[in-house]
Design a protein around this nucleic acid. Structure first.
Length: 176
DNA sequence: AGTTCGGACCGTT
DNA sequence: AACGGTCCGAACT
């Protein structure tokens, strides 16, 4: 079931101001997003893609670029999160409710999903997030505002938070 | 005020 | 049974 899904997965690059991401689509929707790395992959020819896939890709591009600009996309492509456990999906769902420019602690997210003692497990679930950026695991910090960990390069966490912070400050003037 | 250490907690493999 | 993107308090500096 799971291995068969992998074979039908379509992967395509997405060029952004932050580099070339890679998006993975299953039959159900966007199933994975990779940060830019040295690996290179050629984009599929438009005629090679189904109309549905083109639509998902276009929605993904739009949402990704908006988020990288510190904004909040109104709509996302359909997400295929079927690889996650019940708990992980609950955490990922909670992550999506954190507005851009805001942060939560792992303990706060744990409370939000009804496992007040599960902060560590939340960290694990964040690390298992298959669609970073769009599912904003970077908005979860350790207690007392410390950065906390990140599965890929922690520099990405800083980078993403910085992008959202400038958007926030520009939006509401010089707070402080 | 900042740092380090040691237990305790929880889901996943 | 062991491992993490943790947390908290206590004991330091």
């Amino acid at each position: 079931m799971h291995s068969n899904q992998l074979s039908t997965m379509k992967t395509t690059p997405i060029q952004t101001s932050a580099g070339i991401f890679r998006a993975h689509f299953s039959e159900r929707g966007l199933a994975g997003l990779d940060f830019p790395d040295d690996r290179t992959i050629s984009p599929a020819r438009p005629d090679d893609l189904s109309a549905q896939l083109r639509d998902w890709l276009r929605a993904t591009k739009r949402a990704l670029k908006l988020t990288l600009a510190g904004k909040t996309p109104k709509t996302l492509p359909p997400l295929d999160l079927s690889t996650g456990t019940e708990f992980q999906q609950a955490v990922w769902s909670a992550l999506r409710k954190i507005p851009a420019g805001q942060t939560r602690s792992y303990a706060e997210v744990a409370r939000a999903v009804g496992r007040p003692q599960g902060a560590r497990a939340v960290g694990q679930a964040c690390g298992a997030n298959p669609i970073p950026v769009l599912i904003p695991c970077h908005r979860v910090l350790a207690a007392h505002g410390k950065l906390g960990g990140f599965s890929s390069d922690p520099a990405w966490k800083r980078n993403l938070l910085a992008r959202e912070k400038v958007g926030r400050e520009a939006r509401q003037g010089t707070g402080r």
